[in-house]
């Protein structure tokens, strides 16, 4: 069996298999400690303008999730005239010694890309940028994809992209914020959690929804639900609570954006 080695990158031999670790007894215990919060989100650390070689960028950290997003553009494109800007979203997981074509991480990258693209496209005034392109690059610096809730990662990715777009000064209808929710169902009844840490269990419904909360009607611009037997009542609960969480995040963002704007203004007046 001969597999072609990618000679342009310095990668380990093709037959390399990642280290396998002994199951740690301690790790299963972490599941218990999870959901103590209900209708609050975890503390978020955000910072804008972290990348020097991009039009705009942002960094976001929620516990183990560390994301960076850079926006490049609007840049002119070659070829024929287009009415509005082309938006290209790309997500990159830490490669950790794996080949870039690794199937599993490629499919996760695709999931992140498509959700973020769906969510943020309605927020951007694309028609203001004819014959140009805007590239959005989301770099996952660290995230536990095995044991943590993937929907929370998607929400974080959408949020960091929104902040980077603001930093890049791209014309927006509204800042899109995204929130993940989990509806836990068991014999004790239903309970709802914002920003869940752990993945859903068999009976639960989990979802991530993106909103433009600045609009009067809070339009839903992205939605992904997982679970079985979703009733219309469940759906209402999920959307209403996700909206509440998204509003919490939006309030936080408003504060940060105002502060950063204020700082930039101060800096500009000092340098004069």
């Amino acid at each position: 069996m001969s597999v072609l080695q990618d000679r342009r990158r310095v990668l380990p031999p093709v037959d390399t298999i990642p280290l396998q670790f002994k199951e740690d007894e301690g790790s299963s215990g972490s599941k218990e400690t999870t959901i103590a919060r209900t209708r609050t989100i975890r503390p978020i650390f955000i910072k804008q303008s972290v990348v020097a070689n991009a039009s705009g960028s942002a960094y976001l950290e929620v516990e183990d999730i560390k994301l960076q997003c850079s926006v490049y553009g609007p840049k002119p494109i070659r070829g024929s005239f287009t009415q509005q800007a082309d938006l290209l979203v790309e997500a990159k997981l830490p490669s950790l010694g794996q080949d870039a074509s690794n199937d599993k991480s490629a499919s996760i990258e695709k999931d992140i890309t498509s959700f973020v693209q769906t969510s943020i496209t309605p927020g951007i005034i694309l028609t203001q940028y004819p014959k140009s392109c805007i590239n959005i690059m989301i770099t996952v610096i660290s995230a536990d994809l095995e044991n943590r809730n993937f929907k929370s990662l998607l929400a974080a990715a959408t949020n960091v992209a929104s902040l980077a777009l603001v930093d890049a000064g791209i014309a927006l209808y509204d800042i899109v914020t995204s929130a993940s929710v989990l509806l836990s169902r068991n014999e004790n009844g239903e309970s709802l959690y914002f920003d869940p840490e752990t993945p859903r269990e068999s009976e639960d419904i989990e979802g991530v929804l993106s909103f433009m909360t600045g609009q009067d009607e809070s339009n839903i611009v992205g939605m992904w639900l997982d679970g079985e037997n979703i009733t219309s009542k469940n759906l209402t609960t999920l959307t209403e609570s996700a909206k509440e969480a998204a509003c919490q995040i939006r309030t936080l963002f408003n504060g940060v954006i105002l502060q950063e704007f204020h700082d930039k203004e101060q800096e500009a007046s000092n340098s004069k």
Partner: peptide, 19 residues
């Protein structure tokens, strides 16, 4: 980030940096 792996090719052990 440094990660580990196992190879069965003799003489291919070492550190592989990819930037």
């Amino acid at each position: 980030g440094i990660t580990g792996g196992i190879t069965e090719q003799k003489g291919k052990h070492g550190v592989y940096p990819n930037v």
